[in-house]
Design a protein around this nucleic acid. Structure first.
Lengths: 337, 337
DNA sequence: TCCTACGCCGCACACGTTTGCATAGCCAGG
DNA sequence: CCTGGCTATGCAAACGTGTGCGGCGTAGGA
């Protein structure tokens, strides 16, 4: 048995389908009694208007496309949660696509979004370059970038304040009394890395601490890259007493390397991460880190998109502040350091 | 400037729009030359057929709805990755919805799926009961459940083999020489908990080890529930030397409680989890656990759904095996135990 | 009584596809 | 030369909505 259409409801209510349409959309053109009667019938027969037919005439789909490199990335997952949550509030649906950082996948994704006529697109924390962004911008629909590494001048974006975050993290270490503070960055030299590093340097300057190039190592944003980077720092003649890591994953690797040497966090070395992924509070020890309000950022991205759709004026580049979460991976340095 | 429609292409190619439609869909009714010419023109003008218009006539949307309790749950995220990946291979799009375990959200989700006329639905690891499932089944579209706690007789499902997993995990501990083996379950008594516990009991029986009720504690599936459960076990006059935990999150809490007592994993107590969430390999120590092939399960769910759509005969209830991953959280018990 | 205004509703078109059916052209066989 | 069949294409209907416009009935004012 097929789904009932608007005409079926019209027949049941002995009115034209136009009247049904208006009644269900709350038009004042219909008398309250008729409208009520129609709504009742529609309800009882479980009528669901076809989104496809509707969007065919309205040329809006109430759908937004979200592309992430991988939804299995905990950061992306939190962001998408925020997006979907907000979308639901506004009666929008989200269609999700993983690019997997594969160009071939990216063109398929864009194609799918175009065919489905999504009203807008959100792309989060993508490393991808100009080609992709070009393709996207040709689709003529509003796009909001979230923590993108190549924020284009012409697109709207919501980004974490990396500089302030790096600054806060490092100042926290300075405040604890550390003077030999290292940084483990991301070897791909993406923009967020540069900015967090910038915050780190500023904090050193502010505390009149010298910047030592040997105190900078590079991981790959994951634990397996953070560990060797930490090892190289530990091999220094005068190793650091504290390390600010590009992100939590890197910090995890650093802690592993420290433990492997028989040293302890934070007794021997303090560690601070960035992101506050959910496992940061469950690591051993629980990680001091700069929290990105991922869920709120997702929500913000969606609401920016909706404003864009409504034609309202919007701030093109939104920068959200991080928040330093102090846990047990940082403490004052040992006396004899 | 509006998107070009099939008629625009038809005008450019000096043919009727039907011919364009057929040419692009690869119909043999069109001569190769004309088809090629049309395809070239369509390509150049960046034509994208409207999925809405198409599905209006074909009554298929090439879209499947996926509902998870929360995409921020690492398990769900991996599953959705597999689903989306497979969907992409088959030119399907997935629209994602979080139920957040809120009934009110659930009805909105179902409604949205109905209006969008999704071709099928996958719902993963949901605790929700009969009402929701009823609503869903009334939509008349194929549904595949993934690791659902209330697998209905009438629906297709793909589930992890909880019994075998629990059996393997416990036998691993037995094999290491442990004789006092405890189980930390989930206090909500969901089906997966019952089954894993069943595997645990079978392993004890197989090894002629007595089952001691005091060796069973209950968490809440998260670290904060696992910790107190572990504490209660540690307070026993003769505490266990090994613990099989309902899942990795619980195991994380257990390890935390053990460390808090000044004991060590696995030297004093061995721990094995379930799931193999990505952080299991990064915990301290790296966790021995039963791996669920989450990504493959997602892919499998989608392909089952597609088979259902094509009318092919399918196995209604698929059970996939887990795999014991031995890491460093398990070892032989101490001599004097 | 007639005209006007207004409240309520239906007619018909449009949106962009797919597809059954008709048809025009062509070629071959009788 | 006629006919039949095959190939390539066009015509038109249909999918389910939203919406401009016109119409009908009624009420109220002149």
């Amino acid at each position: 048995m097929k789904r009932s259409s608007i005409k079926d409801i019209a027949r049941l209510a002995r009115v034209s389908h136009s009247t049904v349409s208006r009644a269900l959309s709350g038009s004042t053109l219909i008398s309250p009694e008729t409208a009520g009667r129609i709504r009742k019938i529609a309800e009882e027969s479980g009528y669901r208007p076809s989104a496809a037919a509707r969007s065919l005439v309205t040329s809006r789909t109430a759908t937004i496309g979200v592309v992430v490199t991988s939804i299995a990335d905990p950061f992306a997952a939190e962001v998408v949660l925020g997006i979907e949550d907000a979308a639901n509030d506004h009666d929008y649906s989200v269609i999700l696509a993983n690019s997997n950082a594969q160009p071939e996948r990216e063109v398929r994704v864009v194609r799918a979004f175009e065919e489905r006529r999504v009203d807008g697109i959100i792309v989060t924390s993508s490393r991808v370059g100009a080609i992709y962004v070009d393709m996207l911008s040709q689709t003529q629909v509003p796009i909001v970038l979230l923590n993108n590494q190549h924020p284009s001048e012409f697109m709207h974006s919501v980004m974490i304040d990396n500089v302030a975050g790096g600054l806060d993290a490092t100042r926290h270490l300075v405040g604890l009394g550390h003077r030999r503070i290292a940084y483990i960055g991301d070897r791909f030299g993406c923009q967020s890395d540069t900015e967090r590093f910038g915050g780190y340097r500023s904090a050193l300057d502010l505390a009149y601490l010298p910047f030592l190039p040997e105190y900078v190592a590079h991981g790959d944003g994951k634990p397996d890259g953070g560990a060797p980077a930490m090892e190289s720092l530990l091999s220094l003649p005068s190793p650091p007493t504290a390390v600010f890591c590009y992100n939590d994953m890197t910090a995890l690797g650093a802690i592993r390397a420290i433990s492997a040497r028989g040293l302890r966090v934070p007794a021997d070395i303090s560690i601070v991460g960035f992101d506050d992924l959910f496992f940061a509070q469950y690591s051993a020890p629980p990680l001091t880190t700069v929290r990105q309000p991922m869920r709120d950022m997702g929500r913000l991205a969606l609401e920016t998109l909706l404003q864009l759709l409504s034609g309202a004026a919007t701030q093109p580049n939104i920068k959200v502040p991080g928040e330093l979460i102090v846990r047990q991976s940082t403490s004052a340095p040992m006396e004899n350091s």
